[in-house]
């Protein structure tokens, strides 16, 4: 059974068919790319997957369970975490607290136990604190733990957002243009880290990228969207040779 299956997914925004009968699947521990020109509907797929938008039709199944009509927080708890194209970190919180928000489910103490500082509160908070600091090591960000997130440079904010998503224990990680605004060296390093994250955390990753060449070497399979339509799917080699894709990207 596939980890994620999308069938005939469509959404219409006031007459605009942002997505038409889209279908895709993602398997365990796969890195899959979703590419396409500006406005193709890539982010819309993420928003539908995570329950931010409701589809006009179609089905989404994750480990066999339907995600339609589920709220974003429920979908996260089922095992899908995401980052956003326009960074949405918690700006006035520390780097560490940003990550701890996502680790909410790792703690069980009640409101009253927290307010009255029961021993249970301390032990759980300590455990989560250590775990959150450990996560920062992935991007060598230990030093920034107590910094206010808003003060991080842009690239680190993107990385923090990835860590935050990872901290919520997903089985599938959705990354929306994680390399946006990074230079070629940073981008190459990021792609390496993404592969490492997949191996270490044993999760599947669905990656949106604008730049085709970039996803080619990190993704095992690709889906190509154009004007809300799925125009091609396959391995990077197949996509590279696909006429429709070339036209979509270069114009006819």
């Amino acid at each position: 059974m596939h980890l994620l299956v999308i069938k005939d997914l469509s959404v219409i925004f006031g007459g605009l068919h942002a997505l038409n009968d889209f279908h895709m699947f993602v398997d365990d521990r796969e890195i899959v790319g979703l590419i396409g020109p500006n406005g193709a509907g890539k982010t819309t797929v993420f928003n539908l997957l995570t329950g931010v938008y409701a589809p006009s039709g179609g089905a989404i199944r994750f480990e066999g369970e339907s995600l339609i009509d589920k709220k974003p927080f429920q979908i996260n708890r089922i095992g899908i975490a995401r980052t956003f194209q326009n960074i949405r970190i918690f700006k006035n919180m520390t780097v560490l607290d940003n990550i701890k928000v996502a680790m909410q489910q790792d703690m069980k103490y009640t409101v009253l136990a927290g307010m009255t500082r029961m021993p249970f509160f301390w032990s759980e908070e300590k455990k989560v604190d250590a775990k959150a600091r450990k996560m920062l090591e992935i991007f060598d960000m230990e030093e920034t733990a107590e910094h206010t997130a808003a003060n991080l440079p842009y690239g680190l904010q993107r990385k923090l957002e990835i860590l935050r998503a990872l901290a919520s224990n997903p089985k599938l990680l959705l990354l929306d243009e994680p390399a946006a605004g990074m230079n070629p060296t940073e981008t190459r390093e990021l792609m390496e880290t993404i592969r490492k994250i997949r191996d270490d955390f044993k999760i599947a990753i669905l990656l949106i990228e604008h730049d085709m060449s970039l996803v080619m070497n990190v993704c095992e399979r690709l889906y190509v969207l154009d004007y809300g339509n799925l125009i091609a799917l396959g391995t990077p080699e197949q996509i590279r040779a696909n006429e429709k894709v070339i036209t979509a990207y270069l114009g006819s």
Binding site: P72, F73, R88, Q104, Q105, V111, F121, E125
Partner: peptide, 23 residues
């Protein structure tokens, strides 16, 4: 506490908080 952090995260960005599993 974890509950307070959840409340603050909603102030900071409601959509992001929701996507991180915060009810």
């Amino acid at each position: 506490s974890r509950h307070g952090r959840a409340v603050i995260s909603i102030r900071e960005d409601e959509i992001a908080a929701e996507s991180m599993g915060i009810n």
